Computed example of a mutant assay.
Amino acid sequence: MKKSIGRLLPVLCLILLLARPALAFTGARDGLVLWATVVLPTLLPFMICSGVIVALDGVGLLTRPFAPFFSGLLKLSPNGCFVLMSGLLCGYPMGAKTDSEFLDSRRISPAQARYLLAIANHPSPMFVLGYMADRLALVQGGSGCPLWAVALALYLPVIPVARLARRIYGYHGEEDPTPAAAGTSAAPFSFDVHMMGCFETMVKIGGYIMLFSILAMYLANLPFELPLMRPALLGAVEITTGIQAIAASVPGFPAAVLIAAATAFGGFSGIFQTKSVLKNAGLSIRHYILWKALHSLITCILLLGLQSLLLICG
């Protein structure tokens, strides 16, 4: 049965592409423009720089000012702090990529790596303050929700998700492996090899953005009306296209909730991007999907609570 579906699906996709080639062209173009103008210049420099920091043993220097907060609240080791910081600052899928690489090089333990996968992949502040904030401003009638409330609803769920993940994975905090055990000097660092690896990752990410942008374009042109379902579905498929559709078609505070939920979840495009950088069998993409769904749910609940509090105080 699975083999039959697997054979049939690409045939149906090909028929769909041939039936509506203009939509496929527009979706592919929009996805590649998004990748080239937003994702590539935002993510690639961080990706290259973080690899150099790790190779030069600069992780401790970077994480030392934040270690008391992250180790006290989230029970992270210094290397674990770096994984979380890379995910928070760089956006999808940098946190998962660093997590997988640190597990492969034995800089963190398997328990901490599984724990970090639940909390280390996020939208970057640049995306939130730039693209998402601009789309919230375009919501018909205003979203009725300040940007700081949306940002809190996006990032505060890390704390309850972290507590639950620690309990499930049996992680209670630990030190990083010693340099000898980690094998950090197993091979000399080559900047050219590192940069080519970053390029390879970016090409994979661009391919997934293009494919899911095509899918989003077909969903946006379905022949029947789905007033709330269509933009919500687009947000679940690809967050940039989805956020644009939500802002253009959903008025008021419901638009803010849908935009925050889509951003917290990361979209199936983000899930496939994350899967492409998880090269270690010890990290489960199924677990990751469940954690992101939980994070998105908590984001919605928290945003609703903040909005109610604002209405009461205002």
Score class of each variant (00 low, 15 high):
2 K>T: 15
11 V>L: 15
14 L>N: 06
15 I>D: 07
27 G>R: 02
31 G>D: 02
32 L>P: 01
35 W>H: 04
40 L>Q: 07
57 D>G: 10
62 L>M: 14
63 T>E: 03
78 P>K: 10
81 C>D: 15
83 V>Q: 00
84 L>T: 08
92 Y>C: 04
97 K>H: 11
98 T>W: 10
103 L>R: 04
104 D>E: 12
109 S>Q: 07
113 A>R: 00
122 H>E: 10
124 S>F: 11
131 Y>T: 14
136 L>F: 08
149 A>Y: 05
151 A>W: 06
156 L>D: 09
163 R>G: 04
169 Y>L: 03
171 Y>R: 00
177 P>S: 01
177 P>M: 04
178 T>P: 05
183 G>S: 05
187 A>E: 14
189 F>V: 07
192 D>Q: 12
195 M>I: 11
195 M>G: 10
201 T>N: 05
207 G>D: 03
209 I>F: 05
212 F>C: 02
217 M>F: 08
217 M>W: 08
222 L>R: 04
222 L>H: 09
225 E>A: 14
228 L>F: 14
239 I>W: 08
242 G>R: 09
242 G>I: 09
243 I>S: 10
244 Q>R: 15
247 A>H: 02
256 A>C: 02
260 A>S: 08
264 A>F: 04
269 S>A: 15
273 Q>T: 12
288 Y>V: 03
288 Y>P: 01
288 Y>F: 15
291 W>Q: 03
292 K>Q: 01
294 L>F: 14
294 L>G: 07
312 I>Q: 10
